[in-house]
Simulated assay, not measured.
Amino acid sequence: MTKSEFFDLLEKFEKGTCSTSEVKLLKHYCEKAQTKEESLWQLSNKEAVKIRLFKRILKTIEDQKPKQQSIGKRRYWSIAAVFIILLGSGVLLKQFFGEGEHRVFTEDQITLELPNGELKVIEKSDSNYSLTSNGSVHKLNNSQTLIYHESENSKAVEYHTLNVPYGKTFKLQLADGSKVHLNAGSSIKYPSQFREGKNREVTLKGEAFFEVAHDSLHPFLVNADHLQISVLGTKFNVQSYIEDKTTDVVLVEGAVALSPNEISDTKGRFILSPGEMGSIMKDNNRIAITETTPDIYISWMEGRLVFREISFNNMIKKLERHYDKTIINNNELLAKEKFSASFGKIEVTKLFESLKKYHGINYTASGDTIYIN
């Protein structure tokens, strides 16, 4: 089954038209899709959320399934119908710590996924947020940064995943003091504590700016799509969205080594110097290095949008993430046309008014969707 076929079948489930055999097939593939060792596809944040919710739907149905088959079928769809509404509307039901405690949240909230699969909603306005888990204390400080502290009492290393939805950015400080600024539509998986004598290793989906704390005895590794970045202490930006054709690394300070994920020796490594960008083509794993202006690629941390010779389709992708809007291009002539533009912190409608004025791009807006005519 392809990824497209899987989500087509999931859509049938949402409509309540799946057969029993199709539901079993969905269950089988969603389990494989979320197993690291048997990962079938690269999943976006929203796709991964849908799969997690679907698995919880099946578990709830299984827990409440009656013994008699005839009644079971009616009960099956009555239970499923409630969750289908939640799935389609983007409202998710998750269980948090504490007996019987449940909380409803939406896909536009920042979440922290714990090793047992439970999610914690992180509210930027809550400066008192804190959580103690397995000896590792982390909290949200007044500068809206989720901070981890080194702990000698930690019995075992936990892996946490921080998810940042479209339309938002967020900051993270790891246990070694390294800082990560996550862009919209991104997630990072990392250990709550770094082990003595082991590499400091994290996995990124999306885009982030790293300020790595220097530690010559423990190299810092960032695993991105098709690419591994190795550093000792430096500042760099990584853009590795699933839908992009390349994974790009822009170095601001220090030095980093780039290598395709399957390369284990030093022969396939490329060293970046400040002011350079390393890009790996995902279809052939070839790495190219070019000179660039780092400020263009890190402007997003200040809420600015800077585009230089970027295709209209790629620009749309960035705008969708930044504003959490759906943008549909009905003008095929614009798709590959190159654009250069700079925008400060402005509303999306004002941005498109500017595109209309200076580039002749006509658009209409309806709710959270923008149509390019």
Rank of each mutant, 00 (worst) to 15 (best):
residue 316 I to H: 02
residue 89 S to K: 13
residue 336 K to L: 08
residue 180 V to K: 03
residue 360 G to R: 07
residue 224 A to P: 04
residue 336 K to W: 01
residue 122 I to Y: 03
residue 203 T to Y: 04
residue 240 S to F: 03
residue 357 K to Q: 14
residue 287 I to H: 01
residue 17 T to K: 10
residue 292 T to G: 06
residue 179 K to C: 10
residue 194 F to R: 02
residue 37 E to T: 12
residue 20 T to V: 09
residue 91 V to S: 13
residue 242 I to Q: 08
residue 238 V to N: 01
residue 189 K to N: 11
residue 119 L to K: 05
residue 139 K to S: 03
residue 173 Q to A: 13
residue 34 Q to K: 10
residue 17 T to L: 07
residue 213 A to C: 11
residue 36 K to P: 02
residue 247 T to L: 02
residue 292 T to W: 02
residue 208 A to V: 08
residue 268 G to S: 09
residue 335 A to K: 14
residue 135 G to E: 00
residue 108 D to Y: 06
residue 251 L to T: 09
residue 135 G to M: 01
residue 288 A to L: 08
residue 31 E to I: 15
residue 32 K to G: 02
residue 165 P to H: 08
residue 93 L to Y: 10
residue 27 K to N: 11
residue 168 K to V: 01
residue 248 D to N: 14
residue 21 S to W: 00
residue 269 R to W: 01
residue 74 R to Q: 11
residue 307 F to V: 06
residue 251 L to E: 04
residue 10 L to I: 02
residue 223 N to H: 14
residue 123 E to G: 09
residue 109 Q to S: 14
residue 201 E to M: 09
residue 121 V to M: 05
residue 126 D to Q: 08
residue 352 F to R: 03
residue 292 T to M: 07
residue 192 S to G: 15
residue 173 Q to V: 14
residue 217 L to M: 12
residue 115 P to T: 14
residue 275 G to N: 07
residue 203 T to W: 01
residue 49 V to M: 09
residue 259 S to C: 04
residue 339 F to I: 15
residue 209 F to R: 06
residue 83 F to V: 08
residue 320 E to A: 06
residue 368 D to W: 03
residue 137 V to T: 00
residue 97 F to Q: 13
residue 215 D to S: 12
residue 269 R to N: 09
residue 360 G to V: 12
residue 17 T to P: 01
residue 21 S to G: 08
residue 63 D to N: 14
residue 132 T to S: 07
residue 25 L to Y: 01
residue 373 N to D: 15
residue 28 H to G: 01
residue 99 E to K: 15
residue 136 S to Y: 00
residue 65 K to S: 10
residue 153 N to T: 10
residue 49 V to A: 14
residue 108 D to P: 08
residue 297 Y to L: 07
residue 57 I to Y: 01
residue 203 T to M: 08
residue 192 S to H: 04
residue 282 K to P: 00
residue 250 V to L: 09
residue 277 M to D: 02
residue 329 N to H: 04
residue 53 L to K: 03
residue 64 Q to W: 08
residue 150 E to W: 00
residue 28 H to Y: 10
residue 160 H to S: 05
residue 265 D to V: 04
residue 243 E to S: 15
residue 225 D to S: 05
residue 167 G to N: 04
residue 170 F to S: 02
residue 246 T to K: 08
residue 128 N to R: 04
residue 265 D to L: 04
residue 17 T to A: 09
residue 157 V to E: 01
residue 5 E to C: 00
residue 270 F to T: 11
residue 202 V to I: 14
residue 361 I to D: 07
residue 315 M to L: 13
residue 117 G to P: 04
residue 315 M to V: 03
residue 47 E to Q: 12
residue 84 I to S: 14
residue 112 L to N: 03
residue 143 S to T: 05
